[in-house]
Design a binder for these strands. Structure first.
Lengths: 253, 253
DNA sequence: CAGTTTCGTTAACGCCGTTAACCGTAAACG
DNA sequence: CGTTTACGGTTAACGGCGTTAACGAAACTG
């Protein structure tokens, strides 16, 4: 059985490989604290900068490409970490994933900024679409859904929602794995958005350093923010266990 | 009576004026969507770029200078807007200020990013210090304090706080007008930090566009986030009035 | 084999931050 | 008052950036 993922002609495989190398070299550059520039990436690949224009239309597209792959790779790491808890314990998995997400953001602020603070121009539909397929977003939505299946935490019905929000949860533009959520349960996505907003907010605050460094080091702001969301997700009974899991994960990273 | 603010020699006055022009030209550039570059600022002032090095040590310092002044100017606008409510109604003032803060962030995302998403390097103590005197931070802390004077909402005592957080509230590195807060009431600052984190988070999410545009347009995410903080600030009774004030302000902007 | 597409090159343009060397003039000083 | 100093500007230059244009070789295609 031949490869499914690397089919087609030799040229196409070559091209795939070049894309992979671009991403690899880019992440390497970022890791070293260097800027993500076309020239730097090219020269480290043994090419000249204009050659990269065969693969990317401009600098911003390079950034978007790398951001997408960084998100994918980072998500894979906390999916892996979360998998030490079983399938049927999505709350524990969420606790692990949130903690890992934060630790990644603190350890790699430049990469975090690239993926999550990279300003998206209003009219730029292409970049919007890319955002919609964000890997981490899908993972978090899925966990929230799985938690709801167990705790049946309350969520607003479609009628209760502001009409604009109703549209948004019925046909989401955000990264959310929502196809399998029945129409009448789409109010769940509102809870998801609000929870994501809280997580994003505190992690961005800490990652960009607009915060007392001691508060960051203690992890208390993050912890308190997460703790506030256990109730709304129907996890109040599990509170101590989940916070313990999170603390453990924070201490490790 | 001679000027108090423009004393000293003629040279010093001249220098002050040049700084003012730098800031003015910079904000003008940002307003036009251009980048904030030394060369652009200099040429628009009728100078050459190296001349600016007589006023700022490097590009980052120019950015910091402009960020600080932008924060000051923006804060002044919502202080002004909030002053349509009397002194003794700090809750209403806070509602106005939060809404204005968000509208400013949405209308001027580049400026917002400069002031509030401008990553602060860990070891950079100079920039930390600059952060500590942020104007908007002082205004918000002061409002929270004034609200507490009226509602006496609960806050953690010093013993209840994590030791690190205790240090942080006793000797804050964040922009907070805290000198007049008695030592035993410093737990208030923890509430302030948490509330600021929530406000910062949702506004950053919206301003950077990492969010469904329809959700931003509706303002519901922001509204819900603020609404969640009325309780902890002892403003539950005032809920409808305050949300109405905020809605009005959001609609205007 | 001929023709075309793909993928790389070099050269160049106009930005950028930053440094070094230089100079007139306004202020400070003996 | 004349001298000296330091301030606030200049020009020239370096290296790096994104980006475009013109071009060529090698690989696929008929």
């Amino acid at each position: 059985m031949p490869q499914l993922r690397a089919p087609a002609t030799r040229r196409e495989r070559q091209r795939e490989a070049t894309y992979d190398e671009i991403v690899q070299v880019s992440t390497q550059l970022l890791e070293e604290g260097a800027d993500l520039s076309l020239r730097a990436v090219a020269s480290r690949m043994g090419m000249t900068a204009p050659a990269l224009y065969r693969y990317v239309a401009n600098h911003q597209q390079l950034v978007d490409l790398v951001a997408f792959e960084l998100d994918k790779a980072a998500t894979a790491t906390w999916v892996e970490a979360a998998s030490r808890f079983p399938d049927d314990d999505p709350a524990a998995r969420l606790a692990v994933a949130c903690a890992r997400f934060r630790q990644w953001a603190l350890l790699h602020p430049r990469q975090f900024a690239l993926v999550f603070a990279n300003p998206t121009a209003e009219a730029d539909t292409e970049r919007r679409e890319l955002l919609t397929v964000s890997t981490s977003g899908h993972y978090f939505t899925d966990l929230v859904w799985q938690i709801w299946e167990r705790t049946r935490f309350p969520y607003p019905s479609l009628d209760e929602l502001d009409p604009v929000i109703r549209d948004a949860v019925l046909n989401p533009l955000i990264p959310a794995k929502s196809d399998h959520i029945p129409r009448d349960d789409r109010g769940l996505l509102w809870i998801y958005m609000r929870a994501w907003s809280a997580l994003y907010g505190v992690v961005t605050l800490e990652s960009t350093g607009h915060c007392d460094p001691r508060v960051i080091a203690s992890g208390q702001l993050f912890r308190a923010t997460i703790a506030d969301w256990l109730g709304p997700l129907g996890l109040a009974d599990d509170r101590e266990r989940l916070l313990a899991i999170m603390d453990e994960e924070l201490a490790a990273g």
